[in-house]
Design a protein around this nucleic acid. Structure first.
Lengths: 203, 203
DNA sequence: GTCTATACGTCGATAGAC
DNA sequence: GTCTATCGACGTATAGAC
């Protein structure tokens, strides 16, 4: 559950504590959006927010939890009203989502940092975050894939869960390659994958 | 070029310096293989190698460069004589390579750490490493794809470079998902991608 | 409850002795 | 060529002001 790991540290049940925590989180997000992923230490964030670094640990427990919350909250906000057509394929939805994230400086770097932390052995919060995110995404996309298979938009000899994992992996991996070399066309590659999944034979 | 960024720090032109550097590098690799990716600080590595952390910076300049060299050297060693059939598809070659890397504890984590560092703005060594690695991989795989298109094993309506980027992205992304959830079948997903690229229509 | 002040141990990096 | 010593910054923990 997202709720359990997203539960405020110690003061969350009280209105004022929640409000203050949210206020700090909002400012932290703004700092990330404005300054990118540099200087993401507790002390640097605290200084920009206008509190001491100890105040941040009071509300978030640890830097790890703060980073996860910043990313979660950023994802929660609709970045700019992107009304996806309801028949959009999962790959193109991932592409649009990636495009939206790219608008926020530092967000992609933050995500990669969290994933890198997650696969280390001593970062349980990041690990829970990443495991949960991937599991939910796979589940949701696999469900869409089943529907698209029934409507004839994806070939039916493919395991929906494998397709979901592949789409997520492709989107994440292409995003990183694009960040390092803008000649890598994230969207075109996902469109190609879409075409392959559709199964229309070569001309 | 890899040579320029891989050039020893200050003593590399002299035989003894090179030898000592290589000796330290060998031990560092052994430490990573034995202990995984934990405790990868300069001081921890130095202690296991048997020198002070200042000695490591003398040979490698920075932790960043040491980590890159450890990964490069690990990749340079043939992990266990895996004679790929010459007609293996790029996707299956990536799968085999990933499988081999998985045998060395901490290597996949080290790779992810380097990639995460690379997309930050203040890690030029990691950035050069990652950019170079992806560019070389894309180039090599795209070349293979062209050959496989000519021999009829990959459908000819696909841009070879996009295919290469997609295969690399899929392999990297699936590896991460697998690390977080072993139910994600890295090899099966890449096999599926292979099948899609081949273009054989659904039964 | 909120938050500051302060201290602890570790980190990467560097200067200078030998 | 390698050490010791030291620096500033880091995440974390705790005591206590309010």
């Amino acid at each position: 559950m997202a709720d359990s790991s997203a539960a405020p540290r110690s003061t969350g049940r009280y209105r004022k504590g929640i409000a203050r925590r949210q206020e700090i989180l909002d400012k932290a997000i703004e700092v990330f959006a404005r300054r990118g992923s540099q200087k993401t230490s507790l002390r640097a964030i605290a200084q920009e927010v206008g509190v001491t670094h100890a105040a941040l640990t009071h509300y978030f427990g640890s830097l790890e939890e703060l980073l996860v919350e910043v990313y979660r909250e950023s994802q929660r906000r609709p970045s700019a009203e992107r009304p996806l057509p309801p028949d959009a394929t999962p790959a193109m939805a991932m592409s649009a989502s990636a495009e939206a994230n790219r608008q926020i400086p530092g967000l992609v770097q933050l995500y990669s940092t969290l994933v890198a932390m997650a696969i280390e052995d001593d970062h349980p919060v990041a690990q829970d975050f990443a495991t949960d995110r991937f599991a939910r995404l796979r589940e949701g996309i696999a469900e869409q894939v089943v529907g698209l298979q029934q409507s004839g938009h994806i070939r039916t000899d493919l395991d929906p869960v494998l397709v979901a994992a592949l789409i997520i992996a492709a989107s994440d991996g292409l995003q990183i390659q694009w960040l390092l070399d803008e000649s890598v066309n994230h969207e075109a590659a996902l469109e190609m994958l879409d075409r392959l999944l559709r199964g229309t034979p070569p001309a």
